[in-house]
Design a protein around this nucleic acid. Sequence first.
DNA 1: CGTTTGTTTGAAGCTAATCAAATGGGGTGG
DNA 2: CCACCCCATTTGATTAGCTTCAAACAAACG
Lengths: 227, 227
Amino acid sequence: MQYVSVRRHDQSWAPLDPLAILESLANLTHYHSQQEIYDRNDPVLYRYRLVSGAARKFTTQPDGRRQIVDLLLPGDLFGFAPLHEHSFTVEATVDDTLVARYPCARIDALAESDLRFGRLIRELTAAEISRLQARILLLGRMTTREKINGFLLEMAERLPNGSDSIVLPMSRYDVADYLAVSVETVSRAFTALKQRGTIKFTGTRQMRIVDRTALDDGSDDHHRWHS
Amino acid sequence: MQYVSVRRHDQSWAPLDPLAILESLANLTHYHSQQEIYDRNDPVLYRYRLVSGAARKFTTQPDGRRQIVDLLLPGDLFGFAPLHEHSFTVEATVDDTLVARYPCARIDALAESDLRFGRLIRELTAAEISRLQARILLLGRMTTREKINGFLLEMAERLPNGSDSIVLPMSRYDVADYLAVSVETVSRAFTALKQRGTIKFTGTRQMRIVDRTALDDGSDDHHRWHS
DNA sequence: CGTTTGTTTGAAGCTAATCAAATGGGGTGG
DNA sequence: CCACCCCATTTGATTAGCTTCAAACAAACG
């Protein structure tokens, strides 16, 4: 077991940067589209960071419907909450999805022995919370149009491409299950945006935002009543 | 400054239980219905635990609609994620809501100096994540009936009352904004459940679950297609 | 006791789910 | 390389459910 400084108020004693320690434990694995990264019933052996590609964290409900709880994009960490069992299944949504896996036991031991490492974990977890809260706001939107608008803005921000070009790393079905609407509705919403000239398609899953202000809240129509 | 054991694998050395430390910092405040606990623009000075009563964490969207992101009930901790700014406003939903406030600076300093305290914070944050994920599943439900069913089961589980009696600590408007449906729809859903004999009202906001199986998924009608 | 706020009920309109089917694209095997 | 098939996507028609507008009713508060 490696030694980690426990001295307080003297972080300079630390032999290694916590992030560097974390990365030194990384176990890179790549997955093909639709491949499972972990199942909801699997024992919790790793914590994860998505390096490239994309993945969906979801649950399949008794009626067969699928609800995507979180969408993992490059840079996202997941499975970092100290829960002792998975509640969800995670699968890659595109080929060549690269995931860094950090052995759970090592991570947890480090967090409990190195103050700075523990702090790092707390910060990473905070990012997960932000993502979940943003998701709740998106799902809470009343109309599908607002959901799709918000979704596109989110993608434009989170995807590593240029800020106005979007290459969706997922199918329409995934988008539908992410926004809790039907596939047909997603498709129609995209078509409507295309016809309005708000976005322009360069491929089925490739598009470019032409009129960003129109996405911001649907300001081009149904004007605001309240101040 | 108090000394805290850093020994691992020997928690008995610790002079104080981290939870006890946390509670020793508590600053109890009580709020009346609709009173603000903190605003989204306030500086982050405290972390919180709801002792009794209830509160809503929400945001008001530009169109005036309100989206409740989290419902705080007795025992719930909130504002524990190490975010440097609030994203939401929190208000009590009933009179005599009691909240324990823990000075942020002290908490954070403790977390960064005491391994066990840091661990405690991580565990509390995990609980917040669980709650948010559960919320996403609820919002992702297709029909209002499923949302209401899930809501009632959630309340029955989280409220301190007997497991089948529910005293809603919030108005129908709050329920509506929590589930992202209109007030009228909430009211109609309750009426429908009453008429089916699934629940029985003992007051406008007091009810008792009569047929719990009917709430589990709406199994009494629209049967399952898939296995 | 009157006013305000919260809750319920009614009627109309519209959005989105559902059912159904056509189109398009990617990959595979011949 | 082409033809075919499978799956993803789009489009159409119908229907169910929810929002909206409106108003009655109930409850809390001063």
